[in-house]
Design a protein around this nucleic acid. Sequence first.
DNA 1: CGCTGCGTTGAGACTACTCAATATCCGTGG
DNA 2: CCACGGATATTGAGTAGTCTCAACGCAGCG
Lengths: 244, 244
Amino acid sequence: MEEPGVDIWVRNIRRRDNTLTADEEGAMRGVLSELIEVPADRDVVREHDRQRHSHLLLEGWAGRYITLADGRRQIVGLHVPGDFVDLHSFPLQVMDHSVATFTPCRIAMAPHERLRVVTASHPHVARLLWLSTLIDAAILRQWLVGSGKRTALEQTAHLFCELYVRLELTGRAEQGRFAFPLSQSEVADCLGISAVHANRVFQELRSTETLSWRGRQVEIRNWDALTTIAEFDPTYLNLFDIPR
Amino acid sequence: MEEPGVDIWVRNIRRRDNTLTADEEGAMRGVLSELIEVPADRDVVREHDRQRHSHLLLEGWAGRYITLADGRRQIVGLHVPGDFVDLHSFPLQVMDHSVATFTPCRIAMAPHERLRVVTASHPHVARLLWLSTLIDAAILRQWLVGSGKRTALEQTAHLFCELYVRLELTGRAEQGRFAFPLSQSEVADCLGISAVHANRVFQELRSTETLSWRGRQVEIRNWDALTTIAEFDPTYLNLFDIPR
DNA sequence: CGCTGCGTTGAGACTACTCAATATCCGTGG
DNA sequence: CCACGGATATTGAGTAGTCTCAACGCAGCG
């Protein structure tokens, strides 16, 4: 599939393993079937669904979330172009969470049947797809550490360090700046804190000139300060070379 | 390898996918090489290690954890017999967390080289190994929801529901009872709360006759009450039939 | 039989929460 | 081009949940 978003996906993989052959890359691309466009704030996948396709995000922002009966919502993952939002629905039987768009998204479908065929014939590709779900899990561990043991300020700093590195990888962030479409209360649902408290944390980061966020645009004004607050160690993102 | 712990592993896999052939089962067993014994409170794997083996837990309790510079520790996973404690170290390059024993443990080593060979020749086995790391991730998501959105009581109840189901699977829990070797402050490090507060939560569960925990022995005295408090839905454990 | 680790209790402090009001931004239609 | 409505961000005030510190009891173990 000829499509810039797909190139980002391949590039992301290569940043984790540069021994991918041209044949293997072709096989990976061949996994994708049609393209769909999804408006903002729509569920792409719902809890308890049995999927027959996985979804590769080519453009836009999406997130995984779990809702409790009384409406409390925890966002358990954030996705940017080049990410599979639900590759795990291939080996897994039933979705244990939902996936929704935050912005209009362009998505490529990966039929499970094609994934089955490709992973059987190309073990190296299989391992790379597995790896990509393991990086999701490593991110999840950091979020858990943040929620459990970091203060709201440290945790927020850590999230923005992570997002910067991930976006820089895809060419969607540079010089400390990137477009960030979530609302404060959506970020609060990532962090497991209230929207009011999130707001106060952002004021703190802004007043110390560490990070500013105005009108869907984030600017990291002091990377060293931010990583120090966050105690950020990008090992978990499993990259060869770390930007900055 | 002839060893009861290995049977539990195979049984756990079969509870997720009962189409495993005898040949595939043999291949899976062949992945294991030597057995090691590890005393309590030892690191099996350390953050930043590059592993050449994964570790299958046959006997004992272990956990994954991440430590911050000032000593705050978050436990990011708990493991019982039949669990791989670090299967993800096969596709992943570098460990982003450590793994330690809580009790003396018997462990079977799975050389990555053997995993590479078996997953290449047996795609179905590869998918099942992948699946097992995805279940770890699903558990992680529930822990994140617990830490972020559930109250300490709900979260604690949820953890014990989860442990009961997982242990029941391995024959290590029945009639609401199981041996549980962690200290209260270790549980607190799982939940992301203080040991003092954990203690008060246990008193609450005990006084309502929901769950009692005395001397390394847990007894769930009212499963319905516990699952109601926890809002427990075992879908994420990806089982065919759920005990109880 | 005295450590030592673990569990329990109390008190006071603090982080983060809820509720509620107000301000600001942005898109839309008049 | 401006007025309006709705969503988002900000502020204030009071509160609930959880934390820290510190002391004490108890049990197992050397």
